[in-house]
């Protein structure tokens, strides 16, 4: 088994909204390993996005331990978290979150401008099959194309982990498959640890491991002996 990238112990996150306390994560223990493609599966509100945000350094845990390569993320300051995101993590969001006033290439350059050892924007876009739309603005791209640009943007910094939050959530089946293929290729070709959050059970077939979420905690963890190719997935 390869090395442990993320390790959490009794991870708790509570939100206070309008006087009521919401427990988004209630004591999550989880290990995620290098070069693995993990799918976090669960209904909305089960806490998987909260976990991803904490793993990605976007949010603080309320209590518990979360380690990246043995380094306790809960001890990091905001400045150190920024550094951590910049150097190690690539994000893919459900709604792509491309900057509308920048072209595909420029959206990727946003990352290559500040990352320590990035690949060229063109190369990142080629990896997701977007070479021919490189100078298009987001408004000129389909949803699937926008999401592939977002993936290119995430991988351009050669991150160690790729965190994808419902990457196909806003897409139909056939365009979603193209996006999943791009994620799988990155995982296989570059060895990037990929964590994909989804409520879409069909996607779990492409993962090495599947972590099932329910009510803020892990219900089961299963391993796929034979993985499906994205092209075999349909919803």
């Amino acid at each position: 088994m390869s090395e442990t990238i993320f390790h959490t112990e009794d991870l708790v996150k509570t939100y206070h909204t309008g006087g009521t306390e919401v427990r988004a994560l209630s004591g999550v223990d989880l290990d995620l390993y290098g070069s693995e493609l993990t799918v976090l599966l669960g209904p909305s509100g089960s806490g998987k996005s909260t976990l991803l945000n904490i793993l990605g350094g976007l949010d603080h845990a309320t209590s518990g331990l979360v380690e990246f390569r043995g380094r306790d993320l809960t001890l990091l300051s905001d400045r150190e978290l920024t550094r951590y995101r910049r150097d190690h993590v690539g994000f893919v969001f459900q709604f792509y979150n491309l900057v509308p006033s920048l072209t595909a290439r420029e959206n990727v350059q946003m990352v290559t401008d500040i990352a320590p050892n990035p690949m060229r924007a063109e190369e990142a876009l080629a990896r997701v099959g977007m070479s021919d739309r490189i100078d298009h603005f987001p408004a000129e791209l389909s949803g699937g194309q926008q999401q592939r640009v977002a993936i290119a943007r995430a991988i351009a910094k050669r991150p160690e982990v790729l965190l994808c939050d419902e990457p196909t959530g806003a897409l139909d089946s056939s365009t979603g498959v193209q996006v999943l293929e791009a994620i799988r290729d990155i995982n296989e070709d570059l060895g990037t640890t990929a964590i994909v959050i989804t409520h879409n059970a069909a996607i779990q077939g492409m993962a090495h491991r599947v972590v099932h979420f329910q009510d803020g905690n892990i219900s089961t963890v299963s391993t796929n002996d034979t993985r499906l190719a994205p092209s075999q997935i349909e919803w």
Binding site: R85, R86, F95, R153
Partner: peptide, 14 residues
């Protein structure tokens, strides 16, 4: 707001 969040996620500093 979304773009600001994104920039932060990408590692841009405050």
């Amino acid at each position: 707001r979304g773009e600001i969040g994104l920039l932060k996620a990408l590692g841009y500093t405050d």
